[in-house]
Amino acid sequence: MMRRLILFFPLLVFFGLGIFLWRGLQLDPTELPSALIGKPMPAFQLSSLYDENQTLTENDLRGTPALLNVWATWCPTCKQEHDQLNKIAREEGVTIYGINYKDDRAKANDWLQRYQDPYARNIFDPKGTLGLDLGVYGAPETYVLDKDGIIRYRHVGEVNEKVWQQLREVMQQLDGGAS
């Protein structure tokens, strides 16, 4: 009897491996976890997109849970998600900070005038130095910051309605944890 059962062992191994590999097919290999989850926003000192004489630092992003969106005018997906960001900022009253990544100041300001501006603050990062410290590897990227400026979540790619639901859930959990 025991010997009979042992004959089924390879079949079990096959199914185990099959389930493991099949699960692997569902994962998106381009979605990398951020190395900075749970860490504070990296220190920076960059000018505001709106006013080159105004300097912003990581302290300017504290105070309330917020989204931090990495964008640029040369990035087509940023254009796609822009309406969604406008909606989140206006209808849901969420604070969104922007990092204008490797872009041109005049072009970026034009862009915001034409398509509306959802950003409470916009950091001008023409050389991508802050992007490098954040581990940005392609715009758009969207981070969730808690009220102390700690990075809680990162999404790479377009923010659409479905992604926004995820981001909102993360933000609601932050609120729950705070009170």
Binding site: P33, A35, L36, D133, L134, G135
Partner: peptide
């Protein structure tokens, strides 16, 4: 590099 982009 690992601090920014992870073990990946």
């Amino acid at each position: 590099m690992v601090a920014r982009y992870g073990e990946f």
